[in-house]
Design a protein around this nucleic acid. Structure first.
Length: 163
DNA sequence: GCCAACGTTGGC
DNA sequence: GCCAACGTTGGC
C-alpha cells in the first residue's frame, strides 16, 4: 500500500471554448484525460505531485468573465500524454519517445459545480486569498497548487452542488 | 484587439 | 552561460 499523505489541492485552467466544465460533466464517467500540457512546471506538478483523490478547481480562462466553474478529482495518476507522441497530432513533440516520454497527463473527474461561476474579480476582492498563484500578476501556469487554507476559504464562501 | 508577462529557443 | 528574439497566455 502506498503511504498516505494529506490530500492536496490544485487548479487547472481551460478555455471553455475548447473544453469547458460542462464538457467534462458531459464526458463518459464525467472524466477526461488532461492532455496537451506543454509547460515543464505544470507537467512536473502533474507527473510528480498529483495523486489519486486530490481535488482540483476547474478554471475557465480567456473568457468573460473568467473564473472557477467547478471541482474535479484526480482519478488516474500521471501517464504519458499520447498526443505528444503522435506525429499526426497538433500537439506532437518530437523530443519524446514511448520509452522516454516528455509529456504526461492525469485523468480528472467532475465532482461538484459552483452554483455560480466564482469570477476572478470576486476572488481578487475576497479577503484571505493573498498569495494565491492564480491572483499573482502575470501568472500563466495552467496547472498550479492551491493551499489547503485557500481551498477551504473558497469552498466555504461559494456554494457547490454535486454534478 | 491590445499588450504585459512569461517561457523557450538559439546565436554567440 | 548570457540574453535578445520570439511565440504564447490571458486579463482587460
Amino acid at each position: 500500500m502506498p503511504v498516505s499523505r494529506p490530500r492536496r489541492y490544485w487548479l487547472v485552467k481551460s478555455e471553455p471554448d475548447v473544453f469547458s466544465f460542462d464538457d467534462l460533466i458531459a464526458a463518459p464517467q464525467h472524466t477526461t484525460g488532461w492532455d496537451g500540457v506543454r509547460n515543464y512546471q505544470a507537467r512536473n506538478f502533474m507527473r510528480d505531485d498529483m495523486k489519486l483523490g486530490d481535488l482540483v478547481f476547474f478554471y475557465h480562462s480567456s473568457t468573460d468573465p473568467a473564473g472557477i466553474a467547478g471541482v474535479a478529482e484526480i482519478v488516474r495518476e500521471a501517464y504519458p500524454d499520447a498526443t505528444a507522441l503522435d506525429p499526426a497530432h497538433a500537439h506532437f513533440d518530437a523530443r519524446g519517445t514511448p520509452d522516454a516520454p516528455t509529456w504526461y497527463q492525469v485523468d480528472v473527474r467532475a465532482r461538484e459545480r459552483f452554483t455560480q461561476l466564482v469570477t476572478l474579480a470576486e476572488l481578487r476582492e475576497s479577503p484571505g486569498l493573498d498569495g494565491m498563484e492564480l491572483l499573482r500578476r502575470g501568472s500563466r501556469l495552467s496547472v498550479q497548487p492551491v493551499s489547503a487554507e485557500h481551498w477551504k476559504l473558497i469552498t466555504a464562501r461559494w456554494t457547490t452542488v454535486p454534478v
